[in-house]
Simulated scan of single mutants.
Amino acid sequence: MHEIVPVPPGVWTRLSAQGASITAATWLVNGPGPVRVNATSGAAPSGTASGYDYPPGRGEMNVALADFAPGVAGAATLWGWSDTGSSVMVSHA
C-alpha cells in the first residue's frame, strides 16, 4: 500500500491499511501541521502523550515496527495524531 492519509485534528488516525498487520513502514509528513506517530498491536493509542513527533518534511524510511516501538509486543498498526490537522504519505508491507 502507498497512499496519502489525511490526519484530522484531535483524533488518532490509522495510517496503516484497515485490517492490515504490518511489519515495516515508510512515512513522510506532508503538512501543514506536525504529526505524532505511534504503533500498537491493534487498537488506537490511549491519550496523546505517547509517540514520536514529526514536523512537515520529516518521517522514516523502511523502519521495522519492532524497532520503532520495541516496548509494544506485536506492534502491527501505525497511527498518527495532529493537533492542527495534517497529511502523511505512507507505504508499508
Rank of each mutant, 00 (worst) to 15 (best):
G59P: 03
S46Y: 00
R14F: 04
S87R: 06
R36G: 05
G19R: 09
S82M: 11
T48P: 08
N62S: 15
A64N: 14
P8G: 02
I4M: 04
P32D: 04
A44I: 00
P45L: 14
S46C: 01
A17Q: 15
T40M: 04
A39Y: 00
V7C: 00
A64P: 13
S50W: 06
E3P: 01
I22N: 10
G33M: 00
M61S: 12
T13M: 13
A49H: 04
T23V: 13
A25D: 08
G85Y: 15
S41W: 04
G85T: 15
V7F: 04
W12C: 11
V88M: 14
S16G: 12
P32G: 10
L28I: 03
M1I: 05
M1F: 08
A20C: 07
W79Y: 14
P6W: 04
G80F: 07
M61H: 11
G71D: 06
L78G: 03
M61Y: 11
P56Q: 10
G10F: 10
R58Y: 15
G59D: 00
G59S: 02
G57V: 10
M1S: 08
P70G: 06
H2T: 02
S82R: 11
V72H: 02
F68A: 07
V35S: 01
G80M: 06
R14Q: 05
V72L: 05
S21Y: 01
F68C: 08
G51L: 07
V37Y: 04
T23K: 13
S41M: 02
D83Y: 14
L28Y: 01
D83K: 13
